[in-house]
């Protein structure tokens, strides 16, 4: 199959960018989306042009490195699928495909489709952990965790920090990402001692990174390749309210 691509090209963080048109020819429908870009890049290299830079690593949907707004949708048209697991059979011969980087001031573009998601790491560093130094842990089965709490915590913990929630949100809000970690740790008994401090610190860090706020629209959850529920945002709101009101 043949498709026409419109790709955001930007030399580096400080240069302006623009959409550039490319033709991808003779692509097998069994090709993954990134392999299609690989083949476009091989042609660019053959013409001695700079290939399109895009983030990717595991190519099996778990590392969270790949991104891309594909025809206006984060990770493209398939639900619960990262860009690296999207295949060309989701498109039709002759389609025109727009490919853009995540857009958020907290995720500055570094080159072409590559953005800096360091803000997520800083949110975790501000409190997204349980303080337990190596060696100090009690015997694992000494603290039972109800199965439903543990399962719900796992639902939240499935986040891969790809940033699709921010990219899809009309406000570029990082609430779903932050909420997933706050919720996971608030649901587990191990997370209780730091529960209040954690949510306050993480929300403060989130705001200071320049993300927008949550208008409860739900684009984040729908775009999320791991289908993290918006209910966790309600949980974050609850945690934050309780922590603020009971803070000494």
């Amino acid at each position: 199959m043949n498709v026409t691509l419109h790709v955001w090209r930007q030399k580096n963080a400080t240069s302006p960018g623009k959409m550039v048109k490319y033709e991808a020819k003779n692509i097998s429908p069994d090709t993954s989306f990134l392999e299609m870009l690989d083949s476009v890049n091989q042609e660019l290299i053959a013409r001695d042009e700079d290939p399109i830079a895009f983030d990717h690593d595991c190519r099996e949907g778990i590392c969270g490195t790949c991104s891309l707004m594909i025809n206006g949708l984060a990770h493209g048209p398939e639900r619960a699928t990262t860009t690296c697991q999207l295949h060309m059979r989701s498109f039709k011969d002759g389609d025109t495909i727009y490919i853009e980087p995540w857009r958020a001031s907290a995720f500055p573009v570094l080159k072409d489709l590559v953005v800096d998601r360091g803000a997520f790491d800083r949110i975790i560093a501000s409190g997204g952990y349980i303080s337990v130094s190596t060696g100090s842990a009690p015997e694992a089965n000494s603290v039972p965790v109800p199965k439903d709490a543990s399962d719900l915590a796992m639902d939240a913990a499935a986040c891969i920090a790809c940033g699709a929630c921010v990219a899809a949100c009309p406000n570029a809000s990082a609430m779903l990402f932050t909420a997933a970690k706050v919720s996971q740790l608030a649901l587990l008994p191990q997370g209780q001692p730091e529960r209040q401090r954690r949510v306050l610190d993480m929300v403060r860090q989130m705001d200071s990174e320049g993300f927008g706020h949550c208008t409860n629209i739900g684009e984040c959850s729908t775009a999320c390749p791991k289908e993290i529920s918006m209910d966790f945002i309600a949980m974050l709101n609850r945690e934050h309210l309780k922590a603020t009101l009971s803070k000494k």
């Binding site: 955001w8 206006g72 684009e219 729908t222």
Partner: peptide, 8 residues
């Protein structure tokens, strides 16, 4: 975005 679709 040059092209942005809403889903939810």
């Amino acid at each position: 975005y040059a092209y942005h679709k809403k889903q939810a």
